[in-house]
């Protein structure tokens, strides 16, 4: 086969795998930003914090990073509940989400990032599971397990979340709170309780995404910054509150970014994220598949 074509095919396949990681990172945001209308810009920072705790626990106990990520998710759920409690009490209830609420999450992001620098130092951390060095080959196409395993975990988490939102009573209530919190109140369901639960879930997803991240690449305290553009672009492009839309957008995004990196060099990939975000905001703010909000 033509070497350029092989390069392109490999770029697409590993882009899809990378897209799995992005899906994990963006799903939590689709819940908090898309469904609950909480602009959690600290989400990528929470993900990086998850990655650091995975490294810490995984190294201490000798456990697999993806397993640790899932095991620590309940703790992150509680953290999310706590953050939402503060946010609701001081900002949402007073109707001051716009300026003060944004500043609050920016402060949280900053505290996490600088806190990680103080606790762990600015250098990169990694935790390689044994399968990280294995690569399956399908003909000319490489399937590195370092990318495949996190992508599969991300898909599993996304699928579980999707089922939960579509099938369970509380899951449906989360979708309902996204549409009309007042109506939910009239049905004798407390929208604040539902939002607290959903925000906790979104932070738990950040923990899982953090575990996936640390398998794919080494992390440092400021790794979250570059993810801000990516996850918000994906979330908006996917139509904000739609999980299938989010997954599709994430896979597409992974492919475009990876193919750009393959042919033009990896230093340009942040520019892809930002350019894409701007284009989406300028031309299709309702997302690729979505209706106008």
């Amino acid at each position: 086969m033509d070497p350029d074509l092989i390069l392109l095919l490999n770029g697409i396949v590993s882009g899809l795998l990378l897209g799995g990681l992005y899906a994990a990172a963006a799903t939590g945001l689709a819940v908090s930003f898309g469904m609950l209308d909480i602009v959690n810009i600290a989400h990528p920072a929470l993900m990086v914090m998850g990655a650091f705790t995975v490294v810490l626990i995984g190294t201490a106990l000798g456990l697999d990073p993806l397993l640790v990520a899932v095991l620590q998710a309940p703790l992150f759920y509680l953290l999310g509940v706590l953050i939402y409690g503060v946010y609701h009490h001081f900002f949402e209830k007073r109707g001051e989400e716009a300026l003060q609420g944004l500043a609050f999450f920016f402060g949280v992001m900053f505290i996490i990032e600088v806190g990680l620098v103080m606790a762990f130092g600015p250098e990169q951390r990694f935790l390689d599971p044994p399968y990280a060095f294995i690569t399956w080959r399908l003909g000319e196409i490489d399937l590195p397990l370092r990318m495949l395993a996190p992508a599969l975990l991300a898909l599993a988490a996304l699928g579980a979340l999707h089922l939960y939102l579509k099938r369970s009573f509380t899951g449906l209530a989360v979708a309902a709170v996204a549409q009309d919190a007042e109506a939910l109140r009239l049905m004798a369901v407390n929208p604040v309780r539902i939002k607290r639960l959903a925000f906790g879930l979104s932070v738990a997803l950040a923990s899982i995404a953090g575990g996936a991240l640390v398998v794919v690449q080494p992390v440092d305290p400021s790794s979250g910054q570059i993810f801000i553009g990516r996850v918000f672009a994906i979330c908006i492009m996917g139509g904000m509150a739609s999980l299938p839309g989010c997954l599709t957008a994430a896979l597409l995004f992974g492919v475009v970014e990876n193919v750009t990196a393959t042919f033009y060099g990896p230093s340009w990939s942040p520019a892809v994220a930002f350019g894409w975000l701007l284009l989406v905001l300028a031309f299709r703010p309702q997302g690729l598949f979505g209706r106008m909000a």
Binding site: V39, I41, A98, L102, Q225, I226, I228, G229, F232, I236, S267, W268, P270, A271, A273, F274, G275, L277, L278, L281, A282, P285
Partner: peptide, 28 residues
């Protein structure tokens, strides 16, 4: 111009990314 016709948060998100991308450009 690109983001202000939308809700304010989109402008904020865009400025957040702007710094990251400008840094990429300068580093390169």
């Amino acid at each position: 111009y690109l983001t202000l016709r939308l809700r304010g948060v989109f402008f904020s998100i865009a400025t957040l990314c702007l710094a990251v991308v400008l840094q990429t450009l300068i580093v390169n």
